[in-house]
């Protein structure tokens, strides 16, 4: 077989093939479009009830300057990191054990061992 000499049989591209392709593309789009529409609606329905109850119970507060809807990636990352550390107990823990060394530690070393000195240490 000569791979470079590929022959295209255009007669195979018939009505059946065209139907499968077009119906397939349309159904995939419709399925995901339908899901997308549902997911656009669901949060609104869920928040509708919450807003309704909060309006009844709380007086309207003046709007603040902080834009809650838009937060930069760095802020999101910092919050995520803090939550991750908190929920997974990854933050630093102190041992909470206080110890006081009462004895002075004297390390023996040839550099400071008076028994190995040739000369007397001047006093």
């Amino acid at each position: 077989m000569n791979i470079l000499a590929i022959t295209w049989d255009w007669s195979a591209f018939d009505g059946f093939a065209l139907t499968i392709g077009i119906v397939g593309i349309l159904v995939v789009f419709l399925a995901l479009l339908f899901l997308s529409v549902i997911y656009r609606i669901i949060p609104k329905i869920m928040q509708l009830n919450i807003k309704h109850t909060t309006k009844k119970t709380q007086p309207q507060t003046p709007s603040t300057d902080i834009n809650v809807d838009f937060m930069s990636g760095e802020v999101n990352a910092a919050i995520s990191c803090a939550l991750h550390l908190y929920f997974n107990d990854l933050h630093d823990y102190e041992s909470n054990v206080l110890t006081v060394n009462t004895k002075e530690i004297r390390r023996q070393s040839p550099w400071s061992d008076k028994h190995q000195f040739l000369n007397q240490i001047s006093k």
Partner: peptide, 14 residues
Amino acid sequence: FITFWSALMLGFAP
């Protein structure tokens, strides 16, 4: 689906 059409034209069965 474009690859499906291409494979058909190259002689593969549907």
